[in-house]
């Protein structure tokens, strides 16, 4: 089956910085794909290449088999792109903003009016459609921002951090709407700083770091990469070197890494049960000033693969 959105070997350099290197993935119809990465990992650059804003140095993008470089207009007509920022005219009403984007996508006047009503209903803003965007809350603006990308019934929806700065009610409305679109067969590329959103919405996840996809798979596949071990983050004060040597040799500890002057990360089977032994092992050499046990989940996998938390 032809992937709705596929990219292979994408690279982009800004001066001396290789922002994206050899990125590739494919999204099937009705599949939700999450792109996770810390700030500066290359997510936005990758998306910019996928939607035709940036020309890749190498690699290619196809949308439903249409090559973006060879037939940009035909390929872009199948993409619905929701940028991270709220790209709407504040002086216009929600309806007028939607009309503008519908006309950009060439929708005939009569069909456009009907589509605007459908989209307003979908994003739950039919009753506020004729208010100026400047009077909307952040969440309402986000919803119109998404609606503008749905008017032309795209094959693939690309959402770049769609819930930044929104209230819980709007976040729920956005996620519910996105899930309905995917259930209806739309392909989805989703980036977010909120791990729980990615875990809820996405079927597969690609983790990008330093411009490369470092892991890809379903949630279960990714979690399995770090095994069943818990991640234990320790902050130590005192003889950290001596304490670290003891911790490395401790039974049950699979891996120990110095992550800072006084910080140590351990990978341990049954982390909560090992915790008393850890405290005892460092006793006399160092004092444990803080401890965090992270059970195996996508966050832990992300931390394991990138060395940083998603919201760092």
């Amino acid at each position: 089956m032809t992937a709705t959105l596929a990219c292979t070997g994408l690279s982009k350099r800004f001066g001396d910085v290789l922002a994206v290197q050899d990125v590739g993935f494919a999204i099937a119809p009705g599949e939700a794909y999450g792109l996770l990465g810390p700030n500066g990992a290359g997510k936005t650059t990758t998306i910019s290449m996928l939607v035709g804003l940036l020309k890749p140095a190498t690699g290619n993008v196809t949308v439903c088999g249409t090559d973006l470089a060879a037939e940009p207009l035909a390929a872009k007509a199948k993409i619905g792109y929701v940028p991270q920022e709220i790209a709407l005219y504040p002086e216009l009403t929600g309806r007028e903003n939607l009309r503008f984007f519908g006309r950009l996508f060439g929708l005939p006047r009569r069909e456009l009016a009907a589509r605007i009503d459908e989209v307003l209903d979908l994003v739950g803003l039919s009753d506020r459609a004729d208010g100026k965007l400047g009077t909307y809350s952040g969440g309402m603006k986000r919803r119109i921002n998404i609606g503008a990308a749905l008017l032309h019934r795209p094959e693939v929806l690309i959402l770049d951090e769609p819930t930044v700065g929104v209230d819980p009610q709007s976040r729920k409305a956005i996620l519910d709407g996105v899930e309905r679109l995917v259930a209806d067969g739309m392909a989805l590329l989703y980036t977010s700083h909120y791990m729980e959103e990615v875990e809820r919405v996405c079927d597969r996840v690609g983790i990008i770091d330093h411009g490369r996809i470092v892991a890809e798979g379903t949630r279960h596949e990714l979690v399995a990469m770090v095994g069943s071990a818990d991640t234990i983050e320790l902050m130590l004060d005192g003889d950290v070197d001596g304490a670290f040597d003891k911790l490395q040799a401790l039974e049950g500890v699979v891996e120990a890494v110095r992550t800072g002057t006084g910080s140590v990360r351990l990978l341990a089977e049954g982390g909560r049960y090992v915790l008393p032994a850890i405290i005892t092992a460092v006793d006399g050499r160092a004092t444990v000033t803080a401890v965090e046990v992270i059970e195996p989940d996508l966050e832990a996998t992300f931390l394991h693969l990138t060395g940083s938390k998603l919201r760092d």
Binding site: R103, G106, H152, R153
Partner: peptide, 21 residues
């Protein structure tokens, strides 16, 4: 909302007038 319906949409870009308006 089904993406399959996209094929029926006739794409007639009118970007210049849309921007002016």
């Amino acid at each position: 909302m089904r993406p399959q319906e996209a094929a029926r949409i006739r794409i007639r870009p009118r970007p210049i007038l849309a921007l002016v308006a």
